[in-house]
Design a protein around this nucleic acid. Structure first.
Lengths: 343, 343
DNA sequence: GTGAAAGCGCTAACAA
DNA sequence: TTGTTAGCGCTTTCAC
């Protein structure tokens, strides 16, 4: 692999001069610059960022660790983060923890050893310990989607409590009375938050929210199928189901269909997430949309602020985005098209 | 940031000894090991992989550059590659070029400067030049999904020519006769390949494949809407449309619905890709499925073989996967459920 | 405008 | 079993 020394030798200059040319610094005479440039091209010299990183103690690299790469929400987050990172002159290292704490720890370890300039993390659970153990304390962290009680860090999240509350009102307005909410992981704050919004909506209308209609599970497809199995095995069947996220909603739909239930005629289904793209499909999913792209951007911006010497010591900031109800047809809505943003 | 020297000083040993302990080497006495280990934990020492990488001239890092992170196919590829990389003790750096050559070049540049051990690339176009200019020649490349004529490298791809051929036969069997194919980029080999399969199927049945039914476009949602607009503006409306990938299919569906066409009653729609997850939605999309996960795994395996000194000089290998027809209901199929793999 | 020299943090070869 | 030394490829003073 061509090194800076080799270029220097070939061009008859010192490594410093090559370095100056390679980084487009001004204090080089035109004639030298051209000569060096020619040798660089000739030898296909590509600067070694590993060596540079060692010297400069910064990498120009940030990491984003998400928990589910197949989720439209986290995909949107990744796109937003990527664009913002590029804007800021940083590269983005993406990792996928699959909602697995061990895997998360491994990624954090690798990320930390590589001395990235910062980390955007969707934490898998409530144990900041592993986090602290895997990452050098100097590396700034921005938490995304989920805060970590007792852990001081910037947070970007979405107020899905209110979102779920509004969704609950919507379902009640459609006449649903036996509403279930399913599929979130109890040790991830977004689940109790959504349950709280759901309960508040029902309470406000004096509708019962029996505990057997609140079914936790994994934040994935199986979590949805499992929950529906439990629901259908119980005495009273719900007339609407809120899935904790898009993956869960798919599992819910799978299992309802398998059980011969029609959606929305027999059971309405709604979810909380960024929308899956399908549009012309019937029914269109009613959902509470989280602005993933914007959240990814915001996380990078918080991180960039932390990278400045001035931002180092600032107190942690929290950026909270609003969720938006997108009305589809999956809960028996008849007023199709009055909010057609799902396309 | 705690360095190895600092640990050594505190523990009263040499840096080498710390290094040995940190890497779990055997030739350290138990008592020393314990003492050093204690200091490591105390000082939260995390080895600097940048320095190690500089010394060892290998990073344990490979990069995967995909063109569309919202595509279910590439998402599956990423998951497969990630699992295989972890299996092989490598970390995966993920990048998203958005089908943009400039962005691709930038990523390759960053990746190359970081001296990753290898690159898995979904090339955006047919210009290997930029590729060669952005990446040190020593870094092995595996091309994924698309080969690059005239560029010698391992390739993992899927035979979508045959897949599209079989899909064509399926559509003909359903009685469709005015079949269009839309939305692929002419300078990406997967498009002509799919068109060829389509044409072969029609030819075999003596059905015309008029050029105005072959409409290229961008490999994204807009490509689909655009194509449908063109199709509908033309004289004769197709009775079935093959979308070049899942994103395009969504655009096609969008625009058909907007134009008041029912799917599948007025126009059938099929696509080529990994499946989007939605299942209970009606219609379910008929599609030719590419095994993204397996392809990602295979790409990493090829790369790993190249990393061995023995594999360096081996001639390029090509791994071709088969595509599978998954029958849904979006083309007017009545035999629902005889191939229900789309769930 | 250019070069010499030191050093970032680590590991590998060698010596003790 | 442990330590010493050199050097990976670069940037950064500091001279000239």
């Amino acid at each position: 692999m061509t090194s800076i020394e080799e270029v220097a030798r070939q061009a008859g200059v010192s490594p410093s001069t090559v370095s100056r040319v390679a980084r487009n610094q001004t204090n080089v005479s035109t004639v030298t610059r051209e000569r060096v440039q020619r040798v660089i091209t000739e030898l296909k010299y590509i600067p070694n960022a590993v060596a540079r990183g060692l010297k400069q103690a910064r990498s120009g690299l940030i990491a984003l660790l998400i928990t589910d790469i197949t989720s439209p929400f986290f995909t949107a987050v990744a796109r937003g983060a990527e664009d913002a990172a590029r804007e800021a002159g940083l590269s983005l290292l993406l990792g996928n923890s699959e909602e697995d704490s061990d895997l998360e720890a491994k990624y954090l370890r690798v990320i930390g050893e590589r001395r990235v300039d910062g980390v955007i993390l969707v934490p898998t659970n409530q144990a900041p310990n592993s986090l602290v153990r895997s990452l050098p304390p100097e590396i700034p962290i921005v938490l995304l989607d989920r805060s970590l009680p007792g852990f001081k860090a910037d947070v970007v999240r979405c107020d899905t409590r209110t979102g779920t509350f509004v969704l609950g009102q919507h379902l009640l307005g459609l006449g649903h009375r036996r509403i279930a909410i399913v599929g979130g992981m109890p040790n991830i704050p977004t689940w109790p938050e959504r349950v709280a919004g759901y309960q508040a909506a029902l309470r406000e209308s004096g509708v019962a929210a029996p505990p057997e209609f609140v079914i936790p599970g994994d934040y994935n497809r199986d979590g949805g199928t499992e929950a529906v199995r439990v629901l259908l095995a119980q005495g009273e069947r719900p007339d609407a189901i809120i899935a904790a996220n898009a993956q869960v909603a798919l599992g819910v739909l799978d299992e309802l269909v398998a059980a011969g239930c029609r959606v929305p005629e027999d059971v309405g289904v709604a979810t909380i997430d960024d929308p899956f793209p399908p549009s012309a499909f019937v029914p269109r999913l009613t959902l509470v949309e989280q602005p993933g792209y914007g959240m990814g951007e915001a996380a990078v911006q918080l991180l960039v602020a932390r990278l400045e010497p001035a931002g180092r010591a600032e107190p942690p900031r929290e950026v909270v985005f609003e969720a938006t109800l997108r009305i589809g047809t999956s809960c028996g809505e008849t007023t199709i098209g009055h909010d057609d943003v799902m396309r």
